[in-house]
């Protein structure tokens, strides 16, 4: 007697009088096998039909995706190997010339460094402020909705408008910031916020972060609401103070939200354009030039589409690399 056992299954006794039922069971299995074959054929037929239907249903979305995403990506690659002064001119193949020009262009390197700095400022200022305000606002009872709304409001303002507002705040002669500093006796701290080469990128980023922190704050508040209250109770029982609760309960509880916010802030940081374009146009003397603003300048002001395409590819590679590295770091952290 053979006892059949499959891993994880209960021990099953073999059928008694097996030979007697062999013919019977053989008939059943033959019928079952036949049914299985027919079923498989019909399943194959229906899944092929399903696939066709799915393809038809997806066709509009795929067509849009191909037209507005894949085709422009292909066109950008094509442009990067061509010299073109615009869409109405014939392009000539130049091989890797545009890539070589980009590598030799000091403004490309300058704007690359500025882009990294911009990204770091944005993650720290917008993300950091979002977290701090979330921690503060989530403690409020009656006024929480008011402050949540108030802090989120800047996010609803267009970045171009934010640029205009902050350019006026930073005006060295009439601006709110320098006037306020002078009025409170801190005139020595007044600055040329948009003219000082060491300050300009930071100053513009403050404006950009001011517009962005509201969204991050809301995400952090949502994260805070998901932290199990009993963990705080347990920490209290263990005698933890407020700071220890923040370090050992709140921040670990916000890990998922934090990684999401950092990813989002990095992507938004890489996309930085509008505030710089409105507030400084990359100046003074390229001190706030980002890859994005330089791309715009090359493509639409100098009509150098080939070089602009190379920088678009560079920016995309940068975004992909940063995302991969960040995700790996995140995976390692959660292990």
């Amino acid at each position: 007697m053979v006892i059949h056992q499959t891993p994880g299954s209960k021990v099953v006794a073999p059928l008694r009088d097996a030979p007697a039922v062999a013919g019977h069971t053989g008939g059943i299995s033959a019928r079952m096998s036949e049914r299985r074959t027919t079923g498989a054929a019909s399943t194959a037929g229906s899944s092929a039909g399903d696939a066709r239907t799915a393809l038809w249903l997806m066709a509009p979305a795929l067509a849009l995706y191909a037209t507005f995403t894949l085709l422009p990506i292909a066109a950008t690659f094509w442009l990067s190997f061509n010299s073109s002064a615009g869409f109405n001119t014939s392009a000539s193949f130049v091989g890797f010339d545009n890539y070589a020009k980009a590598a030799q262009d000091p403004i490309v390197w300058k704007s690359l460094v500025h882009t990294f700095l911009w990204l770091a400022y944005h993650v720290v200022m917008a993300g950091g402020l979002g977290l701090l305000l979330a921690l503060a606002v989530s403690r409020l009872r009656i006024t929480q909705v008011f402050f949540r709304t108030a802090f989120f409001l800047p996010h609803l303002v267009s970045l171009a408008v934010v640029g205009v507002i902050w350019a006026n705040i930073y005006d060295p002669f009439f601006g709110l910031l320098n006037t306020a500093l002078t009025r409170i006796g801190l005139g020595a701290f007044t600055q040329g916020w948009l003219s000082d080469p060491a300050l300009v990128l930071f100053s513009v980023n403050v404006a950009s972060s001011w517009q962005g922190f509201g969204l991050y704050m809301l995400l952090f508040i949502a994260g805070l609401q998901n932290i199990d209250r009993s963990l705080y109770d347990a920490a209290e029982v263990d005698g933890a103070n407020a700071f220890q609760k923040l370090i050992y309960v709140t921040l670990p509880g916000l890990r998922e939200v934090t990684t999401f916010v950092v990813s989002l802030a990095m992507i938004n940081g890489l996309k930085g354009f509008a505030t710089v374009f409105v507030m400084t146009n990359g100046g003074p003397f390229y001190q706030s030039e980002l890859i994005t603003t330089y791309i715009y300048r090359l493509a639409f002001q100098s009509q150098n589409h080939g070089l602009a395409a190379v920088l678009c590819i560079l920016l995309s590679l940068l975004a992909i690399t940063i995302t991969i590295l960040f995700n790996r770091w995140r995976a390692r952290l959660s292990q």
Binding site: D171, P172, F173, F174, G192, S195, D196, V200
Partner: peptide, 21 residues
Amino acid sequence: IKKEMAGLDLDGASRLWFNKR
């Protein structure tokens, strides 16, 4: 010409002139 003027645009500089500063 003040260095801070590098941070001004046409409107900002005009404002300085229109206000007789």
